Amino acid sequence: MSSVKRHKALVALLGIIVSLTWIYPFVIIFFGSFKNRSEIFTNTLWIPEEVVRDNYPTAYNNLDFTSSFLNSLLITTVSLVVIVIFSSMAAYALARKKSKISTGIYFLCALTMLIPFQSVMIPLVSMFGQVNLLNRFGLIIMNWGFTTSMSIFLYYGAMRSISVSLDEAAYLDGGNPLQIFWRVIFPILKPTTVTVIILNAIRLWNDFLLPSLVINQEGMRTIPLRMYYFFGEYTVQWELALAGLVLAIIPIILLYIFLQKYIVEGVTEGATKS
């Protein structure tokens, strides 16, 4: 075997090992969702000896899955729409305005990504509570604030790779800045937009800490908050928790599969060219 073929075989083997390392935890979760509670501990890493089909309908009912799914979907979707609109427009303005002020604002946005959420969560939630901006609406506003900086960072890097001559040509054709951005520039940013969507969607869909502090009405709880009901003070309903976890991750996995071909390209444009 030549050195080239040996190298390719080694890379393929390494890729298979890494893939199995990442996939195996999901396989364990899936198998565990069909086991009873005792078998989860006695037969953790293998297929169930006796398939328990009642875990899924029980978990579905206990999660109030339809309501919690719609809450998660509403919060995630509205947050993403506003994040994409405002962060892309802000990045366009910052990238096209060549001044010390625009550069300073960009670096300020980048620096805010270094501020840990835990350092501001208590005063932030207290302030929102004083002005009655908790629950879904308040959570959506907080999501905008905590995710816009990273989105601007990605859009800004991608924007700098787009020639200014496109703006000038569209301007000569009679377009105003808003028309130039939405009709000429924004379609070119599709890979970056998809990257912003998938990265933020995963974070917002799976977030537990912020919703647990902000949402205090029963009918507005998201799926991660509902999942907490399976973890009692003295017992943990692992069989239902695993079934509920499978139900919760299916939508985000489908979104990732549908958009994954754009992710590498978008991250490269947004991160390496900034």
Rank of each mutant, 00 (worst) to 15 (best):
A91C: 05
I115S: 04
G244A: 11
L10P: 03
I202F: 15
L154G: 08
I185N: 10
L213V: 04
K5L: 11
L14V: 15
N206R: 07
T76G: 04
R37Y: 14
Y229E: 13
S2V: 10
I85S: 07
V164Y: 14
M220F: 13
I140Q: 01
G174H: 07
M113L: 13
F31E: 05
A91G: 02
V81W: 00
V131W: 05
S88G: 07
E218D: 13
S68A: 09
I202Q: 15
I162V: 14
S102L: 05
I253Y: 06
V78S: 04
E168D: 14
Q130G: 13
K8Y: 13
L80E: 03
F231M: 12
A243T: 02
I162E: 05
R160E: 10
L63E: 01
P251N: 04
M89Y: 07
V82P: 05
A271T: 14
N62P: 10
Y262T: 02
L154A: 09
L124T: 10
I141C: 03
V82Q: 04
R136A: 04
A271Y: 09
K261V: 11
M227E: 03
I105C: 08
L247Q: 09
L254N: 03
I75H: 00
F69P: 01
V27H: 09
F26C: 11
S33M: 09
M159E: 07
L254H: 04
M127D: 04
Y228C: 07
F31M: 12
I152D: 02
M1C: 02
L255F: 01
N36P: 08
L204E: 01
G157R: 11
Q217W: 08
W182M: 14
V27C: 15
I253S: 12
A12L: 09
M227P: 05
S161T: 14
N206G: 14
I85V: 13
D64M: 12
I101A: 08
L210E: 00
L172I: 15
T21I: 12
L189Q: 08
F146C: 09
V131M: 08
T235G: 08
T66M: 12
I28C: 10
A95P: 12
M1Q: 04
E50I: 15
N61D: 13
L74T: 03
L73R: 00
V214S: 02
N135A: 03
I75K: 00
I202N: 15
M121I: 12
M220Q: 14
D207M: 02
L209H: 05
N36C: 07
M121H: 03
L247N: 10
Y156C: 02
F230H: 00
I252P: 10
S19H: 04
H7R: 12
F230Q: 00
F26S: 11
W182F: 15
R203S: 15
K98H: 08
F181R: 02
V184Y: 05
N36E: 08
C109L: 11
Y234D: 13
M227K: 03
R96Y: 06
S149D: 06
V194M: 06
